[in-house]
Design a protein around this nucleic acid. Structure first.
Lengths: 200, 200
DNA sequence: CGCAAAGTTGCACGATCTGCAACTTTTCTC
DNA sequence: GAGAAAAGTTGCAGATCGTGCAACTTTGCG
């Protein structure tokens, strides 16, 4: 158990960060289509070949997607008490993640502006969302003892919870002076739990 | 108003169908990774260059995705009475589409088996889902008079409805002797409308 | 130090996808 | 029908992506 990540680990983290930052900056300047892996690698001081040791796709670097990194929701979800209803547990895990998301607001906004202007970028993010969804379904299935292949419920409640997250964040992004993310999440989950009646 | 699609239109439709069928067949035989655009084009009697006049991605051909073709839900949704609640309208449109989907069961199953075995294939389908989602949000926003950039509701109800469709279909796919798709859709939308309580 | 493990790099390669210009086929118009 | 206009097909050149492999360099550790 090394407290200090050895030099090797530290340099890897730095390189990954450098690649991701360079990719984001270049994509903002030139547009994602006009950024080449070669340019990202050069701006980061590594070879193009090395880029692909860190990211399997160019867009993953722009979006800062690391497959090995766990989703922000997963850890909080497994920590919820076993007796809690699935939707309530997902809601609580989401609210717990809100603060961490707001800390990265600048990066998130930059990436959101970019994906709005260049929808092709969203593809990889959506793919990442799908992975997270599968993980969460596993957890909910275990919590409820339901078989996710035969019973609709686990996949449904997870898909709706992620939809709530996604939708709340898009309103958060779009607002001029956004409300706290946590209260947006809460309001959205409330509508879910109420059966999605037309508000007002 | 030409009843008979002219020769030009008919040949285009045939070529598209031939490319899609060849792509699916070859992907089943060899696995999607080992199918090249060149092989698909040759099996369809056109040049590789022409392939890209019909599909912008190899995977789109395998999955039979045509961007110009409207989604199965859209037409039914715009036909629903204006007074109907959004979730009810989405439910009705989904049930109306169930029959049409069951007619294509063989193709749908083949593609499902393929995407299960090769998750990379799912990326393009998910991207297509996202497009459909945007269209439906537009319709619901107009029906309700809500601003989809400021109000969470339209995007939320659409995202949850599509989640219901997706999840119900995955259970349908996985079942040995599947229940009618319509009743699966109905049951799933019921859970949505009830606020996603843990069943049983 | 000296060995083993891990990471980096160059190289070659197949494949995707696009732009362009020439050519062929279908459709339209008279 | 004949010829012009529109639409579609094709080959070609080329940029880029992404991968496998083998050599090389750096780091970790006894």
């Amino acid at each position: 158990m090394t407290m200090t990540l050895g030099l090797r680990e530290r340099k890897k983290a730095e390189t990954r960060q450098a690649l991701s930052a360079a990719a984001l900056r270049l994509a903002e300047e030139l547009g994602p289509e006009r950024v080449t892996v070669e340019a990202i690698a050069e701006a980061s001081g590594v070879s193009p070949r090395t880029f692909f040791n860190y990211f399997s796709h160019k867009d993953d670097a722009i979006l800062g997607i690391s497959p090995d990194e766990p989703s922000v929701l997963l850890d909080d979800l497994v920590g919820r008490p076993a007796g809690e209803a699935p939707l309530a547990a997902l809601r609580a895990a989401t609210l717990a993640a809100a603060g961490r998301l707001e800390e990265q607001a600048d990066e998130l906004w930059a990436r959101h502006r970019l994906t709005q202007a260049h929808p092709a970028l969203a593809v990889r993010r959506t793919a990442r969302f799908a992975e997270v969804e599968r993980e969460l379904v596993e957890v909910i299935a275990r919590r409820t003892g339901l078989d996710p292949d035969r019973d609709v419920y686990p996949a449904l409640v997870v898909a709706c919870a992620l939809a709530a997250v996604r939708v709340a964040m898009s309103v958060w992004y779009e607002a001029d002076r956004p409300a706290p993310l946590g209260s947006l999440f809460a309001a959205t989950f409330d509508q879910l739990g109420a059966g999605l009646p037309l508000p007002g």
